[in-house]
């Protein structure tokens, strides 16, 4: 059988239309570009605050309750920090006081059963509460490890200032 050699002029290369693909790709790029936003990492301080009732089971297991009182000036800034009737100048001092109370000899886990209650002025700016919670609940070691201290933290009920 004789194979006939075709002499028709076939194109050397198949041309693919790139324009629609590039259009779509740029549309996608623009979509992702505008959807992109830089977000800072967020973390949580977990607190368990059941409605106050008789014979709370958590209070039975805890000892050495720590009361921290935060007062505010007229503008809501932190005016004073008190812990066990001792006036403390800043959150670093509060942290040191908590460390001395909890004790480092027994290890950081010894603080797990200790409960702390934050009693704050109504007008106090919330960032001070987080500052106090940070001072109480742990610290970061130089190698970046988080050591937990008091984990049972609660806020006292709100007290509206007298008009």
């Amino acid at each position: 059988m004789k194979l006939r050699h075709t002499t028709s002029q076939a194109p050397d290369k198949v041309e693919i239309q790139m324009t629609p693909m590039i259009d779509i790709v740029f549309q996608l790029l623009i979509f992702f570009l505008f959807s992109f936003k830089i977000v800072t990492q967020e973390g949580d301080f977990n607190i368990r605050m059941p409605v106050a009732g008789p014979a709370s089971s958590t209070s039975l297991q805890t000892d050495l309750p720590i009361k921290v009182r935060l007062t505010a000036d007229d503008e809501g800034n932190l005016a004073s920090i008190r812990m066990d009737d001792a006036v403390l100048p800043n959150f670093t001092a509060l942290h040191e006081k908590v460390m001395s109370r909890v004790g480092t000899n027994a290890g950081p886990d010894a603080a797990e059963n200790i409960e702390a209650e934050l009693d704050c002025d109504y007008n106090l700016k919330y960032r001070n509460v987080i500052g106090a919670v940070t001072a109480i609940s742990g610290y970061v070691t130089p190698d970046g490890r988080i050591v937990k201290l008091i984990q049972k933290i609660k806020l006292s009920p709100p007290k509206k200032p007298a008009a």
Binding site: M49, C120, Y122
Partner: peptide, 13 residues
Amino acid sequence: AESKTGVVQEVIQ
């Protein structure tokens, strides 16, 4: 950060 602690407590309540 600038909200009032009392209001946060009210939300919790």
